[in-house]
Amino acid sequence: MARLAMVIDTKKCVGCMDCVVACKTENNVPEHLDRDWLVYETRGKFPTLHMEIRSERCNHCDNPPCVYCCPTGASHVHDFGGVVLVDYDKCIGCKACLASCPYDARFINPNGYAEKCTFCIHRTEKGDDPACVAVCPTHCMYFGDIDDPNSEVSRLLASRNHHALLPAAGTKPQIYYLT
């Protein structure tokens, strides 16, 4: 069984938002709404500063509260790679999943259903990278199967320091940030 994950090298990322623009055109995301976004986290006092730049999105958690709280079964874990998806036909737009997500990764589409990153499943099922990964001019994003120890993502996680977001939330997020 594959477990799809994304590994993002914060050392290379310049925070240019190409991933955000590419997601919007690829997935026709409505104006003023985004499935992915950038965080620029600065610590220290000038000039002794440290900044981590992160491209963030749905973490496709192994322990996904959005799936557990969904009253209709619209939010579900897909059998392809453990990707968390929303079946828009089943979604009633109740926003329980928005409230449950510690990453604030979801929004309500103007047509009334919950929307978020799909790991570009229409591309990844065919073996392509998600649009954000494919477009990145710094090549800072990697996508693959972390159950395969020989995959690029597994090798990066084995060789580099990394962290995921809000591990204390217990959601087992599947976006990893190399530091």
């Binding site: 955000v20 950038l38 600065t42 610590r43």
Partner: peptide, 14 residues
């Protein structure tokens, strides 16, 4: 810590 976000969250639920 100084955190800047790229998206405008106040618009998010609009």
């Amino acid at each position: 810590m100084d955190v800047t976000l790229s998206r405008r969250r106040f618009l998010k639920i609009s």
